[in-house]
Design a protein around this nucleic acid. Structure first.
Length: 829
DNA sequence: TTAGGCTTTG
């Protein structure tokens, strides 16, 4: 056995009362000062929990007084085969993984561990299935890193070998089969710290939800299927109701109380995963129910497959060990294919007159309305497509930054909260990020014909449907996403969010002077400005039209019309190498390619290579799709999701979009014999945020996907699409606006082409198709440059640079014009 | 003690 040379003690446990040949032998070691006490605690804990005889044995200079029975010989991993005689053999390995203790259908305890062969430098692992009393005992004792020795095992074919890539056989171990287990525990690394005293405390046992008994206090893991965010109860405490489900498919509703909001689980979404310690189980109305008992503690985890396993704790001190991380990951994978947890989330821009939804937003103002209702002014950066209700409140009651509230007056909406939510609403801090659950939108019919009907936002009293208000921390991924979005919105003047033709009217609704009124903007100023060549003088269009190409001009003209009128028709993909333009493929084409890939099974040989870690699972629907995600590592470590590049095999369009919301980069791939490869180039080679990046079919020469590892080795991989394209041998296509402007200046009219990646509109062409905010901005810009239904005299002037050039079209030459070095004025965008 | 979700509406 592998034992450290310094002071060690050994603990011998004979288990299975009456059984002489089935034994668990645990060897514990520790530093001199601490070893004795820790061991004593362990022994006492074991005596209490298992009522087993405990015997302390002394080890001198790393040698065990008690050796393994002399007839036993070590068996190598490669010699484990079905049908061979392993009677006098033992197998030894390091525990690299252990699963939660569960019960089989017949009530037998079952415990599964994974051993790694410690004689071989190559990773070689084997599943060991332990049944009955031995399972229970091992679950209490075993930690990752322990040396595990087993004799008297049965060798059987491993049904999961194909999936987990471990040894083709597994070992079956039980008292009944006459097995013997010897465990050598790993010495503690930090003997005096809090974690160590926790690690020698009795190991927590987690009860599956189908094994709960009335009157017990248990520890649980579960996926949140439903929850009510903490609300003020009628007693002295906050209350939160949480319904969990686990792999047994049994549900448990827990009612949790605490006077301190932070001591309740920090659940933000259905699908989050929780670990509860010390929940009391009671029977209520014929069903099991969980309730807080003394010392209740919880950890909550994001339920997204592949997201970092970072607990949100309800107490300052908690234990969390590697194998628990595995439990969380397994629950995530189970949930991904067995549960549908898509919530009724929506943005303000998605609202309809009659709906209930969850809104993630920032609080910008609040006010007392009356005894039973309270006003929250919130925004999420998007614009509600309907006029919204403004709740009348006394000015002195309104809390919040007045200038900001004025700025956001067209984006912020009033939410009226009622009854039990008032107290919590009052305590909210301006600027905090909230998720308001089950907000109701209601269309108010116009009583007066002069006032158009508007939409009202209500958070009704009561807590059914999980109605309530949750306070999200700044580091919540949804909050981080929202903050980034809000910053973009704030960069632009929200004046322009108005859909009025502001050039002529100004703002009739307020008299504030701290913001520039559109009237103050001189209409004679150009709606576009030049970014260079300021010293050039203007040329009349008549002169331009009568001159030879190629030349460059500065002109002052009005935009009489433009084409195409439909935004999506103006966005194209351009290859700067072969200079061709093509249409942006629609989502169906991508979906079709993905469906075509479903037939290609992921190659197990390509799972978890040195530079990426893979997770594979099978969907539970009739298609039994195999999905594999390969997370690219950085210095052998997984990164935070927002910095992570992943490759996916077998995902649907929807699944891929979902991943792009959490992870920096997503690359759809498929397996071939010896490597992963990109899909057909009609599909995007990369998805980042909302943007699909395509490669030019003509100019690309795809290279091995392994080249990505060179980018991952950089100090801080930026995952720039151009760099990714380069290492993958892809010639990237760029999104570009292509439009035809008909310009007039009273002396003549000419058509000038706009070919713009970003500069002219100050809107990236790559983002506009998937960003409704940018679409609104674009629409407003075009409405300003060329207001529909307006006479020529009323149109704004545009200052532009244009260049003329010749195109030989068959036999005739034609002169074309293109706009350059021009941008829309800052007060227009 | 409180709430015990399976349903919402000023």
């Amino acid at each position: 056995m592998r034992l450290p040379a310094f002071s060690q003690r050994m603990l011998l446990l004979s288990i299975g009362t009456g059984s002489t040949h089935a034994r668990v032998l645990a060897v514990s070691s520790g530093r001199k000062r601490e070893g004795g006490a820790a061991l004593e605690r362990s022994c006492r804990a074991l005596e209490q929990t298992a009522a087993m005889p405990v015997q302390l044995l002394k080890i001198v200079k790393g040698k065990l007084e008690t050796q393994l029975p002399s007839h036993l010989q070590r068996e190598e991993l490669k010699h484990l085969q079905i049908g061979l005689d392993h009677t006098n053999k033992y197998f030894q390995g390091i525990v690299i993984l252990s699963y939660p203790l569960t019960k089989l259908g017949d009530g037998t305890d079952f415990f599964k561990i994974v051993l790694q062969d410690d004689t071989c430098s190559r990773i070689n692992s084997l599943n060991v299935l332990i049944y009955g009393k031995m399972a229970e005992d091992c679950a209490k004792l075993i930690r990752n890193g322990d040396t595990f020795v087993v004799a008297g095992f049965k060798v059987a074919e491993s049904p999961t070998a194909k999936e987990d890539g471990r040894h083709a056989c597994h070992l079956q171990v039980s008292e009944e089969a006459g097995s013997a287990i010897y465990i050598c525990t790993q010495p503690s690394i930090t003997p005096f710290s809090e974690t160590t005293s926790a690690s020698v405390a009795p190991k927590y046992v987690y009860t599956p939800l189908n094994c709960l008994k009335d009157g017990t206090v248990v520890n649980l893991y579960g996926i949140v299927k439903f929850f009510k965010p903490p609300y003020v109860s009628k007693g002295t405490d906050y209350c939160s109701v949480v319904t969990l489900v686990d792999q047994s498919n049994v549900k448990l509703t827990c009612t949790l109380f605490n006077g301190n909001l932070d001591s309740l689980p920090k659940i933000y979404k259905n699908g989050d995963i929780v670990r509860f310690h010390r929940v009391k189980i009671r029977e209520y109305n014929g069903q099991m129910q969980g309730i807080t008992s003394a010392g209740f503690a919880s950890l909550t985890f994001d339920g997204t497959v592949g997201a970092p396993v970072v607990p949100r704790a309800s107490s300052k001190v908690y234990t969390f060990i590697d194998e628990e991380q595995k439990t969380v990951e397994e629950l995530r994978i189970w949930a991904a294919s067995n549960l549908s947890v898509s919530g009724p989330e929506a943005k303000l821009s998605d609202v309809k007159p009659m709906m209930f939804f969850d809104l993630t937003c920032q609080l910008v103002g609040k006010a007392k309305v009356d005894g039973s209702s309270f006003l929250l002014k919130i925004w999420d950066g998007t614009k509600c497509p309907y006029p919204t209700w403004k709740v009348p409140v006394e000015a002195k009651e309104l809390e919040g930054d007045k200038v900001l509230l004025h700025h956001l007056r067209n984006l912020a909406v009033d939410v009226l909260v009622y009854d039990n939510h008032v107290q919590l609403a009052k305590s909210l801090k301006i600027g905090s990020f909230l998720r308001i659950y089950s907000i109701h939108t209601k269309q108010a019919s116009a009583k007066n014909e002069d006032i158009s009907s508007h939409i009202e936002f209500h958070l009704h009293g009561g807590t059914c449907y999980g109605r309530g208000i949750g306070i999200l921390p700044e580091n919540n991924p949804d909050v981080e996403e929202l903050k980034t979005f809000l910053e973009c919105v704030e960069l632009t003047d929200s004046q322009n969010m108005e859909s009025t033709s502001s050039l002529e009217l100004g703002d009739t609704f307020d008299n504030d002077t701290d913001l520039e009124s559109p009237l103050q903007r001189c209409q004679q100023l150009s709606a576009t400005v030049l970014t260079d060549h300021q010293d050039m003088s203007n040329t009349m269009l008549k002169t331009v039209l009568n001159s030879r190409a190629p030349q460059q001009y500065r002109i002052r003209a009005k935009l009489r019309s433009f084409k195409p009128q439909k935004l999506y028709q103006s966005v194209k993909l351009h290859c700067s190498k072969c200079n061709t333009l093509q249409e942006v493929p629609n989502g169906d084409a991508f979906d079709f390619i993905l469906q075509g890939c479903e037939a290609t099974a992921p190659n197990p040989e390509l799972q978890s290579m040195s530079w990426y870690e893979s997770v594979m699972w099978t969907t539970q629907d009739e298609n039994r799709r195999k999905i594999t995600i390969h997370f690219v590592k950085h210095y052998e470590m997984l990164q935070r999701p927002e910095n992570t590049l992943l490759m996916i095999e077998g995902g649907t369009l929807k699944e891929i979009w979902k991943l792009t919301r959490r992870f920096k980069c997503v690359i759809p791939v498929k397996s071939k014999e010896d490597d992963l490869e990109l899909l057909d180039l009609s599909a995007p080679f990369l998805l980042q945020g909302n943007i699909k990046y395509y490669g030019c079919k003509k100019c690309s020469t795809p290279k091995s996907i392994k080249n990505l590892s060179s980018l991952a080795e950089k100090r801080e991989p930026s995952w720039e699409p151009t760099e990714i394209a380069q290492v993958l041998g892809i010639e990237p296509l760029q999104y570009v606006f292509v439009m035809k402007f008909t310009l007039v200046d009273g002396t003549g009219a000419l058509n000038a082409y706009l070919f713009d990646y970003e500069k002219f509109f100050q809107i990236p062409a790559s983002e506009i198709l998937t960003n409704s905010f940018l679409q609104q901005k674009m629409e407003m810009t075009m409405n300003t440059l060329s207001p529909p239904g307006r006479k020529l005299d009323d149109l704004p002037w545009l200052e532009c640079f244009i260049k003329s050039y010749n195109i030989a079209d068959g036999t005739k030459h034609q002169v074309y014009y293109q706009i350059f070095d021009t941008t829309v004025a800052e007060d227009v965008v």
